[in-house]
């Protein structure tokens, strides 16, 4: 109850930080906010150009590869950007935290949120892609009522990013090495998640390796999202349970770790 009251008092700060992050992200660039959807658009074109010939025309052939790729990329980009920003948030706000009392969780959480909003704006690109392919009739995505289930994987991803962000920013206060390690981890995650390729196209014979790929919660989340907006079918319930469980556990661990260590932050930043 006390925490809720405190959060209510500082909700303005959360709003201001989210606002600030979004406003400052593209300040001084000529195209400004346009970059939120210009950037995924351009990078997707590059990736389609590079990987399209290798993975685009694989066995299942019927799937629209640009949309397939964009779905994966948007979700991955949100996850990696928000967790990286959250990780550095406490260090970056050291000057404030050392001088004024503020609830510290505001910083990682508002960084995840501001990325969530830019992610939402960048979904416009996906909508444009879907409309474009539907209108031209060139391998259109299968749009059905299941598209209304697409917020579910997005919400799970938000929970996951918040939890991981809390864990990372706590670690980052004590060991700055995490910055570099996590950078490498994100690169690994990019290739471990079926973003540019399809998992069945890999024809993996090694059982262990395929288990590792399946254990990646990003895999289940991206697959669920694609089911909603691309395949037009109900997603696998196991994916839902696994990713939701994973996200909730990481959120709980994040909250516990953060709560237990937050009073020590100031001695290390």
């Amino acid at each position: 109850m006390k925490y809720l009251k405190n959060f209510y008092k500082y909700r303005g700060l959360m709003y201001e930080i989210v606002r600030k992050n979004i406003k400052l992200q593209y300040r001084d660039s000529i195209l400004g906010m346009f970059w939120t959807f210009l950037q995924p658009l351009l990078t997707t074109i590059v990736l389609v150009f590079i990987f399209g010939n290798v993975f685009g025309k694989s066995s299942s052939g019927v799937v629209n590869y640009p949309i397939y790729l964009l779905c994966g990329r948007l979700l991955y980009e949100f996850y990696s950007q928000s967790t990286k920003r959250a990780m550095r948030s406490i260090r970056n706000s050291a000057s404030v935290i050392k001088k004024v009392y503020v609830p510290k969780y505001i910083y990682p959480i508002s960084n995840v949120f501001s990325n969530f909003i830019t992610f939402f704006i960048s979904l416009i690109v996906l909508v444009c892609f879907i409309v474009f392919f539907c209108v031209t009739g060139n391998n259109p995505p299968h749009i059905t009522g299941y598209i209304f289930l697409s917020p579910i994987p997005i919400l799970i991803l938000l929970i996951l990013a918040t939890g991981v962000g809390l864990i990372l920013c706590t670690l980052d206060v004590f060991f700055k090495d995490i910055d570099y390690l996590y950078e490498v981890f994100c690169l690994l995650l990019f290739y471990m998640t079926p973003i540019v390729y399809k998992i069945d196209a890999l024809k993996i014979s090694n059982k262990l390796f395929s288990y590792v790929l399946m254990a990646n919660p990003m895999y289940s989340i991206t697959e669920m999202f694609r089911c909603c907006v691309l395949y037009g079918k109900m997603f696998n319930i196991h994916h839902l349970l696994y990713s939701l469980g994973f996200a909730l556990v990481s959120l709980i661990i994040g909250l516990i770790v953060f709560y237990r260590k937050q009073d020590k932050f100031i001695l290390h930043i």
């Binding site: 303005g12 700060l13 709003y15 201001e16 004024v100």
Partner: peptide
């Protein structure tokens, strides 16, 4: 506005 919010005041 940012500084005000840091001190816990509403917009």
């Amino acid at each position: 506005y940012l500084y005000g919010a840091t001190m816990g005041y509403s917009r």
